[in-house]
Amino acid sequence: MQPDPVLASYRPPSQLVVDKEIDHLDVHCRAFIGLAPFLTLSTADADGWPEISPRGGDPGFVKVLDEHRLVLPDRQGNNRLDSLRKVAVNPRVALLFFVPGVEETLKVFGTAELLAAEALDLDLTEFGRAPRSVMVVTVQRAYLQCAKAVMRSGLWDPASRIDRDALPPFGTMVRDHCRLESPLPDDATIRAELALEL
């Protein structure tokens, strides 16, 4: 097979970039996960169609069991279960951890297993509730991602924040997506209802 001409136009990665990938969660990965209140979870179905889902909680809501396993609790959501359904047929997952104020991110790759929350002898209660289920990820690769993307985006820079009025209210966007005739509650009411479900 001929090499892709676009890929061929890139220089090879440095040896340091190649070598930073490890097959376990070392002390630095574990510290990063312990401080992270937010991550994105990437999954794919049996045909390879991808899904990405935001997950959040108190810093350290993801629990590290040992250097090869971590636990991701599943909290109250919209019950579409897109990620969970995909893991049930294709266990490969990727997680990208964020720590507010830290411009580097952490990538973790592995295979996941879905378990009932009570299957683990862990206290995973948060916001007064136990999770519906847990995802136990067996880590195969992990590495710290450099800060360039977060630096370019100004993600943690307060000056980069936009006014919420730059977009229509969430209820308006959902109403338009769903082609509803009746208006949805205002955003303050929606957020108050969401807070009750945390």
Rank of each mutant, 00 (worst) to 15 (best):
H24K: 13
H24Q: 14
L25V: 03
L25S: 04
H28P: 00
R30I: 12
R30L: 03
R30N: 06
A31C: 04
F32C: 02
I33G: 00
L35K: 15
L35F: 07
A36W: 00
A36E: 01
A36T: 03
P37D: 07
T40G: 00
L41Q: 09
A44E: 07
A44D: 05
D45P: 10
D45N: 15
D45A: 03
A46M: 04
D47V: 11
P50Y: 10
P50W: 08
P50Q: 02
E51V: 11
I52W: 10
S53W: 09
P54L: 06
R55Y: 07
D58F: 07
D58Q: 14
V62N: 01
V62H: 02
K63S: 13
L65R: 06
L65V: 11
E67Y: 06
E67D: 15
H68F: 05
R69V: 07
R69S: 07
L70C: 05
V71L: 02
L72Y: 01
P73K: 05
Q76N: 13
Q76L: 12
G77D: 08
R80D: 03
L81P: 08
D82W: 05
D82S: 12
L84I: 15
L84Y: 10
R85I: 06
A88Y: 11
V89W: 04
P91K: 08
P91V: 12
V93L: 11
L95A: 08
F97R: 02
V102Y: 07
E103K: 14
E103M: 13
E104P: 00
E104S: 11
K107S: 13
V108T: 02
G110T: 09
T111C: 12
A112V: 04
A116W: 10
A117G: 10
D123L: 09
D123H: 05
D123N: 14
T125E: 15
G128S: 04
G128D: 07
P131Q: 03
P131G: 03
S133A: 15
S133W: 08
M135H: 01
V136M: 04
V136N: 03
T138S: 13
V139E: 05
Q140V: 06
Y143G: 07
Y143A: 05
Q145H: 15
Q145D: 11
C146N: 12
K148G: 08
V150E: 01
V150N: 05
M151F: 13
M151L: 15
P158Y: 01
A159P: 03
